[in-house]
Simulated assay, not measured.
Amino acid sequence: MESTKNTKDSGNFLNTAVELALHAGQLIKRMAKQSHTITFKGAVDLVTEADVASEALVIAGIKERFPDHGILAEEKGIEQGESEYLWIIDPLDGTTNYAHGFPVYGVSIALEYRGEITVGVVYEPNLDELFTAEKGKGAFLNGAPIRVSETRELDRSLLATGFPYNFRTDPDRIIKLFTGFSLNAQGIRRAGAATIDLISLACGRFDGFWEFGLKPWDMAAGGLIAAEAGARITRMEGRSYDIRVPEIVASNGFIHDQMLAVILRSFS
């Protein structure tokens, strides 16, 4: 049973996500000017002090407002709550970019209720762009409605992708698919932040996106925003998309079947 506080504040989930994403985004932007303390979760999987500070800020804000909600955060893992709400947090998507001073990164906050993402917020502090969505209510950039592109041919499309952290030990399928799309699309960009790729799809900057090896926090908020902007999202073979399955194909809808055909040819 949801607490009295949850019932009272049920209309404030989006506002909470917006407030915390803005605060965390400004924090990591300020910290970007400092030298970084970098630790490694893997050979190419970095963590900075900004990841930790941003995540702590967001978690503290959620716990203050909704103390019985669960939290799934990239650095701290999952903390089960007593309610059916689960906040999914990427405190700094694009950490490698951030550590190298490449200004493509953001904060991602999503809310899941009974297995469905209902709120998604992504803030890109360098461009001061706030992307928001609620399930069934459309997607917005700084308060203005956004839609996916209307590009209808793959060979006229600009795509985005990323390489998973295990790329060095399992490069074959990644290279095969990258080659397949390189030969069939107008262009491909690899900016290093799946969340940013998804919001860029949502507002029509990209026409399609695919990636292996993703985590729930990479897809939860950006996936909802893209879907609410009209995107079609599936797994690689076309089955239903699931943030707990580590792969995604997302498009403006018009080129989706063409993308799936490239994937099939690449692996057949």
Rank of each mutant, 00 (worst) to 15 (best):
G115K: 08
I117C: 08
T118A: 07
V119Y: 00
G120K: 00
Y123S: 01
Y123L: 06
Y123R: 04
E124F: 02
P125S: 02
P125L: 05
D128Y: 02
E129Y: 09
E129S: 10
L130F: 05
L130N: 03
T132G: 01
E134Y: 08
G136N: 10
G138S: 06
L141D: 01
N142E: 00
N142T: 05
N142A: 01
G143S: 10
R147G: 13
R147N: 13
V148I: 11
V148Q: 01
S149K: 00
R152K: 15
L154K: 09
L154A: 11
L154E: 08
D155A: 06
D155Y: 10
D155K: 15
D155L: 09
R156Y: 12
S157D: 12
L158Q: 09
L159A: 12
T161Q: 09
G162Q: 12
N166K: 13
N166Q: 08
R168E: 11
T169P: 07
D170Y: 07
R173H: 14
L177H: 01
F178L: 14
G180V: 07
F181G: 05
S182H: 12
L183K: 15
L183W: 13
N184D: 12
Q186C: 14
Q186S: 15
G187S: 10
G187K: 08
A191R: 12
A191L: 13
G192P: 07
A193H: 04
A193M: 06
A194S: 14
A194R: 03
A194W: 02
L198Q: 04
L198G: 03
I199W: 03
I199V: 15
S200Q: 12
L201R: 04
L201G: 05
R205I: 08
G208N: 10
G208R: 00
F209H: 07
F209G: 00
W210E: 08
E211Y: 07
L214G: 13
P216I: 04
W217S: 09
W217C: 10
D218A: 11
M219T: 15
M219C: 14
M219E: 13
A220I: 02
A220H: 00
A221K: 01
A221Q: 05
G222K: 03
G222V: 03
G223C: 06
I225K: 04
E228L: 03
E228R: 04
E228Y: 02
R232Q: 10
I233E: 04
I233V: 12
I233K: 04
I233H: 05
I233P: 00
